[in-house]
Nucleic acid binder design. Sequence first.
DNA 1: TGTTTGAATGAAAGCGCTTACACAAAAGCG
DNA 2: CGCTTTTGTGTAAGCGCTTTCATTCAAACA
Lengths: 353, 353
Amino acid sequence: MNIYDISRKTGVSTATVSRVINGSSSVSEKTRQKVLAAIDEYGYTPNVFARGLGLNTMKTVGILCADSSDPYLAQAVYRVEEHCRKSGYDVILSCTGYDHSVKERQMESLLSKRVDAVILVGSNYVESSDELNMYIAKAAKIVPVMIINGSINLPNVYCTVCDDYSAIYEITGKMIASGRKNPLYIYNSESYSGMQKLTGFRNALARNGIESGSGNILFVGSRKPGGRSFPVNSVKEAVSKLAASGHSFDCAVTSDDILAVGAVKYAHAAGLRIPEDFAVAGYNNFDLCECCDPELTSVDNRLDVLCDHCVSSLMTIFSGAEATIPKHTMFSGEIIERGTTDFRQDGSLKKTQ
Amino acid sequence: MNIYDISRKTGVSTATVSRVINGSSSVSEKTRQKVLAAIDEYGYTPNVFARGLGLNTMKTVGILCADSSDPYLAQAVYRVEEHCRKSGYDVILSCTGYDHSVKERQMESLLSKRVDAVILVGSNYVESSDELNMYIAKAAKIVPVMIINGSINLPNVYCTVCDDYSAIYEITGKMIASGRKNPLYIYNSESYSGMQKLTGFRNALARNGIESGSGNILFVGSRKPGGRSFPVNSVKEAVSKLAASGHSFDCAVTSDDILAVGAVKYAHAAGLRIPEDFAVAGYNNFDLCECCDPELTSVDNRLDVLCDHCVSSLMTIFSGAEATIPKHTMFSGEIIERGTTDFRQDGSLKKTQ
DNA sequence: TGTTTGAATGAAAGCGCTTACACAAAAGCG
DNA sequence: CGCTTTTGTGTAAGCGCTTTCATTCAAACA
């Protein structure tokens, strides 16, 4: 069943059938109805390939995601897919891991499928490393590139980020303001936002005259893509080791809720009371926060807002109004206090739960 | 840059260029090299649409997934995508939520994109409800349909499942064998595997002469698709309420780790010692198990194995050997014991951790 | 050496759609 | 009531590839 069949059944030309399908130009109401009836009757669906050949688009966008099995990124992918689909675009998902060379190949593969845009979610898109970002520049010459939680300044690429720097700066400040003298920072990602967070921590310390260095900054290795489980216990052990080597902490700020869980486990194991002896803050404000005992204070980085903004912008770009879309948009995170901290001593916040 | 350009540059016909690209029939080594060199030099990529028009395939498979933001399903999607891509197939992801009518539309949309197969992951594909499964039957007339963790007997559909029934039957049995008298079952999904698990619990109780009913079977509502957080505390409260209404339990078997966390929270709140007063078993064996205190006993349902088997089978089907692929394959789960149970009293198992 | 075979190649016909162009009929105008 | 617009429709030329069929040429055989 193709457009010729419909044309024949209805006695109009294929051009007219095409016109009613696409609403591209005026067709009399009478013929429109006739054609629609025939399409319905014979269950005709236009062939996407032929259509693509003519229009040079198939209404799909590619998502390049380091690791869609990471709950955080999975959430982003879900949100983006949902929004795209509701806007009439299907989504091709391509997970890359954290290896740049692979990303480049997968980007090419996506472009060869003639996607109408590429959305990068959750990976190390760092402003500085021009060379590594070559493939993004190349892609952006062909289609718009949207980046969620990454920042890179190139023509035709649009970034949406959370102000992770300030969120960590602020939460670290609250720790200190509530009396903590020796904060520890734990992180597991050297992505763009990972680096922002780290700087936020460092600056908060500096601001308060505390030195930062290997004694209070702990990198615990990245999540392995597709890994069934993140080694929470390895975080606990890493902290224990650091403590054993003569450093002492009265709180931990982390770049991800799961690391905060590790810190909580450390505290339990070390016999420290939470939050009295040891306060903990997570990041992302995911399910995990409620699973913890006490429940985890965390930063809600409003992932949904970022994703929605990103996709909305893309649709605007598709509509031809790219001039109205900012190349860089930043939202702020929100600190959600729960049981692992006692910022209330700060006087400036009351408990959320 | 199209095939004509390459043809012109090399002085061979487009047919020959096509042949070297597809390796479809013999080309002399000399011309092959010449063509490959030109393709490389000009960075030529065949147009997928034109190609699709000729071949009627674009080497993509559709994934229909209820909720790729659920960590469990996200894991499955990741695994499937990775395997497909490595086998040369791109993946179109379509998340449906749990509403059947939506699924039907999205299935049609997938088929209209001419995917080469559809993989259904994690949803209510129930053998019994023929009517609801009509759209699967329809799809299976066009392309092979693979189902992960669901079972339905139709031509051209292939199911890969974990023996959830037996896993729950067994773990409930171990609870009883280790001295528990009043097991509680908590579940949040009425999917195919959800029902299997429930029956496993019921039968284990029956086998041991314990009655099951609304007093010891607790449905706590489904996860809301794309929901940022599963309401763990609502599980805690539901259990508390059941207990307050006069039922008493000495252990909980659950259909998902997150529910087990809720049960653990209940026990903490009620001042029960774990596992002495109250044992808890989760399901899925995810990150969460390590996050819990004590760590969660769970069932590893070998999702990765299921996914790999599913995709391998699909590739075999693509190769034309569908006759060699079983329509239904079942793997068994594995009980991973951690701190929330004390099956060792059973004598038949030692602690894993 | 004449004949057969098979490998290597090209010409050209689709694949199913969109759309520029042409044209007729209808509508609007002074 | 002629004239210009507008509206509705058809014709046919692509879009870039695959593939059938025909053809050429060299190797193999008798």
